[in-house]
Design a protein around this nucleic acid. Sequence first.
DNA 1: AGAGGATGTCGAAGCGCTTCGACAGCTTTC
DNA 2: GAAAGCTGTCGAAGCGCTTCGACATCCTCT
Lengths: 336, 336
Amino acid sequence: MVTLAEVAQHAGVSASTVSYVLSGKRSISVTTRQRVERSIRELGYHPNAGARALASSRSNIIALMVPLRTDMYVPVMMEIAIAVATTARTHGYDVLLLTGEEGPDAVRRVSGSGLADGMILMDVELDDERLPLLRETDQPAVLIGLPADTTGLTCVDLDFKATGALCVEHLATLGHRDIAVIGEAPAVYERHTGFAERTLDGLRSRGRELGLRLLHRPCEGGYDAMAVTLSRILDERPGTTGFVVQNESAVEPLLALLRQQGRAVPEDVSVVSICPEQVAVQASVRLTSVAIPAQEMGRHAVEQLVAKLDGRGGDEVVLLAPELTVRASSGPAPAQ
Amino acid sequence: MVTLAEVAQHAGVSASTVSYVLSGKRSISVTTRQRVERSIRELGYHPNAGARALASSRSNIIALMVPLRTDMYVPVMMEIAIAVATTARTHGYDVLLLTGEEGPDAVRRVSGSGLADGMILMDVELDDERLPLLRETDQPAVLIGLPADTTGLTCVDLDFKATGALCVEHLATLGHRDIAVIGEAPAVYERHTGFAERTLDGLRSRGRELGLRLLHRPCEGGYDAMAVTLSRILDERPGTTGFVVQNESAVEPLLALLRQQGRAVPEDVSVVSICPEQVAVQASVRLTSVAIPAQEMGRHAVEQLVAKLDGRGGDEVVLLAPELTVRASSGPAPAQ
DNA sequence: AGAGGATGTCGAAGCGCTTCGACAGCTTTC
DNA sequence: GAAAGCTGTCGAAGCGCTTCGACATCCTCT
C-alpha cells in the first residue's frame, strides 16, 4: 500500500507538501505540484481513508437510512438511493447504507463514531422517533419526507398537497364530478406517513373548492384487493368517472378490472396516477400522472446536506413542485 | 466526543485495557470488564471509526456495488441490497453503496484507500471489466451473478440453468409441447448478462431432452412491446400453449393480452414465470413461478465475504437451488 | 521451597494523514 | 536600503485507536 510519505520521497518533497497539493489548502508552485501529481500517478497512490478521517475529523461519508420495509415504493426508493450515491460522488462523498432495522440507535452510532459526516433519512414519518436524536446530537441531516414538526430540520419532498390539488383540478377541468381516490395500504395511513396524508389534504381541499364529490379508499394493492375496493366504490358511488390512484401496485389491477367491466379508459372513466414515470409509461394504458421525482429528491437532499457540511445554507424545507403529464388515461367526462 | 482515554480514566484503568475489553483479544478480569463497560455506558462512548480503521487497517465496511441502470429487476436489487446491509450489521459491518457509474475505478479507489475491507458486486456480466482489477488487487470480494471465468472468485447466484430446466419440466409434465420463452430485453442479452444466457441454456437443453419445441424471444417489457412479441410468437407457432416468462415487466402485459384474445389462463395456456415472489403473488393471475431468492442471495454473499475476511473458507461458487411454486397460472395442456 | 506457567494489566510505539507555526527567499514600499 | 509583506516549503505535533512486549501477581507443580 502506497503512503503519502512514499509519494513525498518519490517526488523529493515533504509529506506536508503532498498533502497541500491534494487539498489545495495552501498555494504550491506549479512545478512542485506537477512533480507531485506525477508521483501520485506513477505510484498509484490513494489516500488512506481512515487516516484522513482521523486527522481531519471528516470521513467524507454520508449515511443514507432507508426503510427496512419493502412494501411500498421500492423502485422509488432505489432510484433515490442511486441518485444520492451518484450525486454524493460528484461532491467527493461516499454513501453508507443503513437500514431501518437498527432503528434510532443507528443515528447515535453513526454520529458517535464519526463514521459519517451527515445523514439523509428516507421515509420519514410524521412523528419520527429518530428526530429527537437528530436534534440533540445535532447531526447535519436532511430528511426526504416531511415530519409534523420541521423546526431546525432540513427537508426535501415532493409537494404532495399540491400534487393532490393538481390531480383533482385536472379531472375537474375535464368535467368529472364524482371522483374516487385509491390510496396506499391502510398500514401506510396508520403509520402516519406524511405524504399520504398531505396528498389527501390537497385532494380534499381543492376538491371542496371545486365542488367535487370525493371518495377516498385505502387499498392494499394487488389484483384481489383492488377488485374488492373497486366494487365497493362503485356500489357507493355508481356515478364515479374519475380515479386518482396513489399506489403503484393498484394501478394495473385497476385498469384490468375496468377493462373487464367494459368501462373504457379514458372514454368512460379517467384515471390519474401519482407514481414514478416508468410505471405510468409502461402501464397497459399510458397513464396521465404526476411523477414522483425520485432522482431530483435524492439530488436535492445531497446538495442540501453538502451545503450544510460546508457551512453554507441552513434549515430549509424544499418542496418540489409537482408536474402533471397528460397521457392516454384521462379525457372528458362522458355526457350524463 | 468521548474518547477511549476518557473511558479509561473514568474506569481507572489504562487505555489498552479498555481496548482489550472492547475487542476481547486478551483476557480481562470480570471486575475490570464490568467497570469498563459501565464507564462506556455512562459516558456514551462510541469508538472512533477512523482511528480504529487506521490502527487496525480494518474498516469494518463492506462495499456493495449496484448497477447504475435501473432498467431491470429493481425490486430484486433493492431486496438484495437491504439483505446485504442487515446481514452485514449482524456481523459488525456497515455497507458502503457504490453505483456502477464510477466503473472499474471504484474498485481501485476502494481497495487503495482502505475504505472497505471487501466488496460485493451485483449484476456481474459474463466478461465483467471489474474482474481483472479484482484479481490483481486481490480484494476480498464476492460476486452476485456468475461471470464466464470464475477461477479465484467467489460467486453466489440462483442456479439459473436448473431454473430453466425446472420451468420446462413443469410444463412438459402438464403435457405442453410448444413452449414460448419471453426473455429479458435484447440489451440484456447483448450485454451478456450471465443469468439470462444460463436460463436459456437450461430451458433449451432440458427442452431438447424432453422433446419440446421451444421458441425464445427477448422482449422489452411493457404493454406495447409485449403485444408485438406475442403476436409474432403466435404467428410462428400457433400451437403454443406454454409460456415461460423471465421479465417482470412483461408478465402483466402478457396476461392482459392473453385475456383480451380470449385465451384463458390456465385452461388454454399455461404461464410460468421467473420473478420475485411478490410479483407472482400480486399478478392478476397468481403465477406459477420460480422465485428469485433475493434475500438469500444477499445473505449468502455477506456470509461468504465475512468468512473470507476472517480467513475462513476460500473461493467457492454457491448456486442456490431453484424452487418452483405451483399457483394458478399453469395447468394441463388442452386436449388437441 | 523455588522454578515455571498462567493471568491480568500497563506503557509506548505507531498506523497515515492534516495542519500549525516557522522560515528562507523573494518582491514591494517609503 | 532597511522594513514589511508574500510565497512556497518544511518539520513536528497530534488525531484516537490497536497491539506488542514487559511485568507484576498468583497458581501449580515437583
